[in-house]
Structure formats: C-alpha cells, structure tokens
Amino acid sequence: METFAFYFLAISITILFTITVWSKNILNAMTALAAGMILISGLFFILRADFLGVVQLIVYVGAVMALYAFGMMFFDATGTVKEKNRPNFTVLLLGVLTAVLLVGIFTAPTLINGVPSFYPEMAGATNPQAVGLVLFTKYLVPFEVAAIMLLVAMIAGIILAGKKMDNSISRMSEEELKAQLEKDSK
C-alpha cells in the first residue's frame, strides 16, 4: 500500500515538475508547480511526518500563491510566453551532473549503512512534540541562525520595498508630480 502510494506520488511529482520546466504557458507551469509541492507533502505523510507534511502544505500554498500574483502581473496567463534562450548543452550537461552528484551524495550513506536513526522514536510523543524536542535541543543553533537569517531578509525586503513609501504618486498634486518626474529622470 505504502509502496504503491510512494511510487504514485513520486511519478506524479516528477511529471508535474517536468511540466513546470517545459511548459510555455505560465498558468500551466505554476499550477503544476503548486500541485507538485502539495503532492510532496503527501510523501511526508507516508513517512508519518504529519507535522512536516502540513508545514510543507501551508508554506508552499502561500509561497506559490505569491508567485501566482507575480505571474499575473508580468505575463498573459492564458497565452504562451516567448522564450529567448536557446538550448545550451553545457548548462544541460552541468545541470544533469549536479543532479546526479546530489542524489549520489545523499543516497550513498543509506545505501552503505542502511538508514541509521540518530534519535530513536520517542514513545508517547506526538509528531509536533518530537520535532520540537529535536529542534530546541540538538539543532538549536542552526534553528536560531536560520531565524536571524530570515529576520535579516525580512528587514532587507522591507527597506527595499519601503524606500519611497512616504510619497504616493496617486496623492500628489500636478506640480509635485512633475517635480518628482524631473527628479527621477535626472
């Protein structure tokens, strides 16, 4: 049952992400991306990592939704996008090599040793509790570093976006607008 579910999910995810890469229609590409991300959460559910699965679901639903917003602004959602880049075989080769290397690096230890469990399943602890315990003991420093990184990114984002937030073009008078335009053109 679980094997069947795994192969079903794995094949679907591969197909969906292939569509994401190859499709020239922005709507198809993004929908395939969203569906693939949601199906990945299915993989977590199979592994009994319910919490991670739901987090994957919530985070990527929101993230891809923001991506849709950008897609809506930049492209015609029902038409096809004209792509300029020609197939570049060097890039293709390097990409495939990187993928193979990554898969090799990550699977080699499991192939040799089996899957070692550093932290045996805690009896009686529910899934979020187990995640929390590991996150706030063994991996506290990386967790905090990640938090600081996200904070930095957030502040940077706010500063980048909020530079000219004080003056709104729609509320300017005609003269102010002209002055602003002249200033910008210089």
Binding site: L27, V54, V55, L57, I58, M65, Y68, T78
Partner: peptide
Amino acid sequence: NIGILFVLGMMAAGLYGPLLAGMSQR
C-alpha cells in the same frame, strides 16, 4: 494529531480554486 494545521492548510489550498478559475477564464 495535527488536526488544526491540516484543516487550515486544506482550507488555504481551497483558495486555489478561485485563483485558477479567475486566471484561466480570460
């Protein structure tokens, strides 16, 4: 054991319906 998060996540995914409907209909 993560019932609330699951419900919220699924309801959030439900908003893909209106989003895709609006974008696909030209």
